[in-house]
């Protein structure tokens, strides 16, 4: 199979959309936090916690959507923790984020060992299955790629629309964006910057956790320790690549996922036979760094990102 054949196959684009889905959830979560002015480096650990919480809830008997809800609430809890440290206390967002990632990851692994002490391989659940959307799924190429996915993938796309709608068309979205651009103006309007930022970090962290849960509830049907594997850090790069805009970030995630799907397929071609497989596995991380470098000159970063707001100061 040559590259052209791969790029024109519906199976390839279906895979790209599937790989993009967890990134879309987590990127939207990070985007909400950053638009309000908070860099959330807890993302990697929150995705791990979400992946585990959603899966263990379903394993314990909850329906699949119940698992998604449990993941969301778990993410919100870690968001609350991050928020308290980074917003009212105004602590270094870098250190707090790394701390939340380390805590969420180790708590997850600890809970796993406590709940499942004696298993050599983790139990499986029945994951979300693809749901074909009538008529739309019959469109050549786009149909099977976009409209024969699991409900959680559809939810990811709906979320992008919702985030864009709320951010740009509602007073709440205006307040969130203003909190990230000019918090003193928000305070002058009599609104609480602290409340807005806390809310954004809590809700955003919830979506990061759902991104993690996509891995255990839709992409696979079980939980593994190294499952998230840097996806959270990649999402941080995707927010920058998308210039902090939901639509562009979505395109970035799909583009990125397409590269990821391509490298998996290239490993099985004649190129893959000569090039070491580690080089293919490096590509997503290298691409993320390239994306950061390419976008670095653009001054679209929220002006008050990583700047704590203290009411007393001006």
């Amino acid at each position: 199979m040559d590259i052209f054949e791969i790029l024109t196959s519906a199976a390839f684009w279906a895979a790209a959309i599937r790989i993009a889905s967890p990134l879309i959830f987590a990127t939207m979560g990070e985007l909400i936090c950053e638009r309000a002015g908070v860099l959330n480096l807890g993302i990697e650990g929150i995705m791990v916690a979400g992946a585990f919480a959603g899966w263990i809830a379903v394993w314990a008997g909850l329906p699949l959507w119940g698992g998604v809800a449990v993941a969301f609430v778990t993410g919100m809890a870690f968001g609350l923790l991050h928020g308290i440290f980074s917003v009212p206390f105004g602590l270094s967002q870098h250190v707090v984020g790394i701390g939340v990632t380390l805590l969420a990851t180790s708590l997850t692994f600890y809970t796993y060992r406590v709940v499942l002490p004696e298993v050599s391989s983790p139990p499986k659940i029945t994951a979300f299955q693809p749901v074909e959307i009538p008529l739309l799924s019959k469109i050549p190429l786009i149909g099977p790629a976009l409209f024969n996915q699991t409900p959680l993938t559809y939810a990811a796309f709906i979320l992008v629309g919702l985030v864009a709608l709320v951010l740009y068309r509602t007073p709440l979205g205006l307040a969130v964006r203003a909190a990230g651009e000019s918090p003193s103006a928000v305070a002058a309007q009599g609104l609480s910057v602290t409340a807005i930022r806390m809310g954004a970090v809590i809700v955003g962290s919830g979506f990061m956790a759902v991104g993690g849960a996509f891995l255990t509830l839709s992409a696979f049907d079980s939980f593994f320790f190294d499952m998230v594997n840097g996806r959270g850090w990649i999402c941080i790069a995707l927010v920058v690549f998308g210039a902090w805009k939901p639509g562009k970030a979505l395109l970035g995630a799909i583009l990125f996922a397409a590269f990821d799907a391509l490298q998996i397929r290239l490993q099985q071609t004649t190129i893959g036979a000569v090039v070491p497989y580690q080089l293919f596995l490096m590509l997503p991380y290298i691409l993320s760094i390239l994306a950061l470098v390419l976008m670095s000159r653009r001054a679209e970063v929220p002006a008050a990102l990583m700047v704590p707001f203290n009411k007393g100061e001006r």
């Binding site: 440290f85 602590l91 250190v95 180790s106």
Partner: peptide, 16 residues
């Protein structure tokens, strides 16, 4: 993993 949890919480409590 109790050790990892102790150290992560120590880090967060330290900055606070």
């Amino acid at each position: 993993y109790l050790a990892d949890i102790m150290l992560a919480s120590a880090l967060l409590m330290m900055v606070l």
